[in-house]
Design a protein around this nucleic acid. Structure first.
Lengths: 196, 196
DNA sequence: GTCTATACTTGGATAGAC
DNA sequence: GTCTATCCAAGTATAGAC
């Protein structure tokens, strides 16, 4: 029965993750979540205490991966490459979560206040890497604020429109599979060059 | 009376623009729009025929600016700089609209289908500039799809969180005003370098 | 054209049977 | 723990007075 409970909670979280990413928090109804999860309407309230808590539980379930590396700042370019690599890995492992996060950031939703708990440290790590790199002369940029936006924007924005993306996807890959390493390499190259 | 009508429609559009950007399309109610605009609830239906049409009217009202330049592709780097400059100008003139657009792109909302009418040409222009630059040897990149994402992400993403951005804002500027030209210059530099 | 009042629908959350 | 049935609040849209 403990197994069943976890099963249902997980089914709800999985369904909510996809729906929130696709239709937004407000655009998703508890009914849709429960239908998709194949469970009764009442179970969201029972297990989580409401729709909003499902949202937070989503990040609690996956957030530990957000921040597991400490950087030495001895070699900022190496640190930045590692940071980008980690972010790309997370993004490709949990695209819906990154999608949802991006939405919430953009609209400065009231839910962001609690999410900042996880994110603040992440942005600060990136900032420290940039600062260290600027002082050591390996990065060159003028505005810290805009540079952070450029980098995070490059890292986080992964969709124009399915119809358009598919055109380029097939032109790029010619049927080959797209590996995480390859995407990380593209991303690192673009960002690191942007800081020269 | 024609003046009054336009006045009310404009008041609704202005209110909707801010609210949609901030709370999303689904998160915004017609009541909020009308309250903010200072008009009666019924007027959204009367003038626009529903909430969804307010959304489209917003882009109809501002979209002409989206695409007013043709590029010769003789000098792709110059074209790219011009493209970025135009986008940054639009973004700083209409931040709410770009915000809203970004949300809709990310969640692939059903409203995107109509919006693609305006956007498709824009993305294709950027793509042509990149292609031309790649052939002429002034740009170097591997994946067209990801490169477009990087560029658009850098152009469009302008917010982490007010509390965080403000820290860097004041550190960057030390009280000075931030000009459109300066931001366009930062952005151009980051993106153009990223393509080397 | 604009307002107030209201009809109708949908959403979140709970009560109570199992 | 899970279900069905229901309550209540909130949303969109309209009817009808002015």
């Amino acid at each position: 029965m403990k197994q069943d409970e976890k099963d249902v909670k997980m089914k709800i979280l999985d369904a909510a993750k996809v729906l929130f990413a696709r239709k937004g928090f407000e655009g998703t109804t508890v009914r849709q979540i429960c239908d998709e999860a194949g469970v009764a309407l009442a179970l969201v309230s029972y297990h989580f205490g409401g729709k909003e808590n499902v949202f937070y539980a989503l990040f609690d379930a996956f957030a530990p991966d957000f921040l597991n590396t400490e950087y030495e700042l001895e070699n900022p370019e190496k640190d930045l490459r590692a940071f980008i690599g980690e972010f790309v890995r997370l993004r490709m492992a949990e695209p819906e979560l990154i999608n949802l996060l991006q939405q919430e950031i953009i609209m400065q939703s009231p839910r962001m206040e609690k999410l900042q708990r996880y994110l603040f440290a992440l942005w600060m790590q990136l900032r420290r890497i940039l600062e260290a790199g600027r002082e050591k002369g390996c990065f060159d940029f003028e505005s810290m604020k805009h540079t952070l936006h450029f980098i995070i924007g490059s890292l986080i924005f992964t969709r124009i429109a399915p119809s358009i993306d598919d055109i380029f996807e097939s032109a790029d890959m010619q049927g080959k599979e797209e590996s995480v390493e390859a995407v990380a390499a593209y991303t690192t190259r673009f960002i690191v060059n942007g800081l020269k």
